[in-house]
């Protein structure tokens, strides 16, 4: 291994092998510094040319699949959209996403999120039937109705928001930013009638009220979803729901 030069940049990569290691350590690799190379390209170079034992997740390389989230110099990032040249002359520290158990090297275990997500029923719920939508019926929507929820539908489940959220780090029961943003996405959909179901889940102690509005989820979101906004708006919604349930007869709610 040579030292970093103008044409190369050093990656400090967190390594954890569960068979042998009790805690992660750093390995260093020098990779070519090219204008168009991302951190993910650097990691793939290491995997292909230097050390085949390095483990990390990736798929699309274009910010759509949400697989390649990692901590780059302390910030949660999609590594496919994070350019090495922005960190020159380096070194660049690459660690797994914070707040999740580390399965191996840069791979985290997101089972917790996968179990939480279906609890908020992130699909269109119709009032009249058990089926979600009639396949042969068109449910029309105006551009204005689409605009109401569109930003929340951009979530790619990349987990950067969970990684940035100190509340989730300290209290893993918290249902978390992406799940609540997706609940809001369906609540705001003019075709959906599932709000009352979701409010029961999100109004609980591990729901929206666990959030203290740190706002980091929104800052790190690569798709500009603004989960912090979704959570605060959901707080208002659950509060109004509680007041209405207290004041109004059942039929008027």
């Amino acid at each position: 291994m040579t030292s970093s030069t103008a044409d190369t940049i050093r990656l400090r990569v967190s390594r954890y092998r569960p068979e042998t290691d009790s805690a992660p350590h750093f390995d260093e690799y020098d990779v070519p510094l090219r204008k168009e190379w991302t951190v993910l390209d650097g990691l793939n170079h290491v995997k292909n040319e230097v050390d085949t034992t390095l483990s990390f997740r990736w798929s699309c390389r274009m910010g759509i699949c949400g697989s390649c989230g990692m901590t780059v110099d302390g910030e949660p990032k999609l590594t496919c959209g994070t350019f090495l040249s922005d960190y020159a002359p380096g070194p660049v520290t690459v660690e797994p996403l914070a707040n999740f158990p580390v399965a191996r090297d840069l791979v985290v275990d997101i089972t917790d999120f996968l179990q939480k997500l279906p609890r908020v029923s992130p699909w269109i719920i119709r009032p009249d039937e058990h089926r979600n939508v009639e396949p042969e019926v068109e449910y029309l929507q105006t551009p204005g109705q689409l605009d109401v929820y569109r930003q929340f539908s951009m979530c790619i489940n990349c987990m950067l928001c969970y990684s940035a959220c100190p509340v989730y780090g300290l209290d893993p029961e918290f249902i978390g930013p992406a799940a609540i943003a997706l609940a809001e996405r369906y609540d705001l959909d003019s075709r959906d009638h599932g709000t009352s179901q979701r409010i029961d889940v999100l109004g609980a102690h591990d729901g929206v009220w666990a959030c203290t509005f740190v706002g980091e989820c929104t800052k790190v979101c690569p798709k500009h979803v603004d989960p912090a906004s979704a959570i605060q708006r959901y707080k208002l919604k659950t509060a109004l729901h509680t007041v209405k349930a207290f004041l109004l007869p059942r039929g008027a709610r």
Partner: peptide, 26 residues
């Protein structure tokens, strides 16, 4: 089985909020 994974669970430091300016402001 997934229970064989033996994942590493990092601990959150009491001083987590000193790590970033935005956390300090919060």
């Amino acid at each position: 089985t997934p229970t064989d994974l033996r994942p590493y669970r990092p601990r959150i430091s009491t001083w987590w909020w000193t790590r970033k300016r935005s956390y300090i402001v919060f």
